[in-house]
């Protein structure tokens, strides 16, 4: 199965465990929102699962050899780093690197994947722009397009919606949901409960080193969970537009 399976998964930072004995299985077709307050270990869970941090227990992804892993999972880190003033198309083409044989030039299939990623992120007019000269939100979209161009069965993104305007936040979440519907396994950390409720098929809430809740959005996003994990009160409603979750106040 191409997805992510964690078994008794723990990650330590210094002397204390950030995550303890997490067992979790995420399959193809799921769009999983990873929720939790700051410091709950969302990024740590993803980096550990990818083999970028030392961990105990098993992760089906970090078990893979490096080259196979690069063809299995695309990772978009939270730090949106673009080191050199390369063109947008060049940057997105980097996503094809794991698929290129040594010394081989990008094939028509590679170019098709690049073009498709550009189209999906609405970056047609940006192809020849210098990536470092774009605005933060535009850069974020270019970097997401790079991850899409990698065309892997698993897509892991760390707070992709941060810094995007409302229209692009919605478009992005729709894109991720579509990827999942198309058979990919999408895992995204996020803070916007409203977007999570509307676009994710499943939510995993991290708190105090473990999984506090796991399930479909309407089961997970309860007043009790929000109060316990996030210390907030929220307006939760089912509408014709789907579920609405709007935080309205802080408890205590």
């Amino acid at each position: 199965m191409t997805g992510l399976t964690l078994t008794d998964f723990s990650v330590a930072r210094g002397p204390c465990d950030v995550l303890r004995d997490i067992s979790l299985s995420i399959g193809p077709g799921e769009c999983v929102g990873l929720l939790g307050p700051n410091g709950a270990g969302k990024t740590t869970l993803m980096r550990g699962a990818l083999g970028l941090m030392k961990h105990r227990g098993r992760s089906s992804l970090s078990d893979l050899p490096l080259q196979t892993r690069a063809k299995t999972v695309a990772w978009l880190p939270q730090a949106r780093e673009i080191a050199w003033p390369v063109s947008v198309e060049t940057l997105i083409a980097l996503g094809r690197l794991p698929h290129l044989a040594p010394g081989a030039k990008p094939s028509t299939a590679d170019q098709a994947a690049i073009d498709s990623a550009i189209a999906r992120m609405g970056l047609e007019g940006f192809r020849d722009r210098i990536a470092t000269q774009l605005s933060g939100g535009e850069q974020a979209r270019v970097l997401i397009a790079r991850a899409l161009a990698q065309a892997t069965p698993v897509l892991m993104v760390d707070e992709p919606a941060a810094g995007l305007d409302p229209a692009h936040q919605i478009t992005l979440m729709q894109t991720l949901a579509t990827e999942a519907t198309g058979g990919r396994c999408v895992i995204t950390s996020m803070h916007d409960l409203g977007l999570a409720a509307r676009f994710c098929t499943r939510l995993v809430v991290l708190s105090r080193g473990g999984v506090a809740a796991d399930g479909p959005p309407h089961r997970v996003l309860t007043p009790e969970m929000l109060a316990d994990v996030f210390q907030i009160r929220a307006h939760i409603a089912q509408t014709e537009h789907g579920p609405i979750v709007q935080p309205v106040g802080v408890i205590g």
Binding site: R47, L66, V73, A79, E81, A83, V86, L91, L94
Partner: peptide, 9 residues
């Protein structure tokens, strides 16, 4: 160009 984390992945 995309940073160390992205390069490793």
């Amino acid at each position: 160009t995309l940073g160390e984390d992205a390069a490793v992945s």
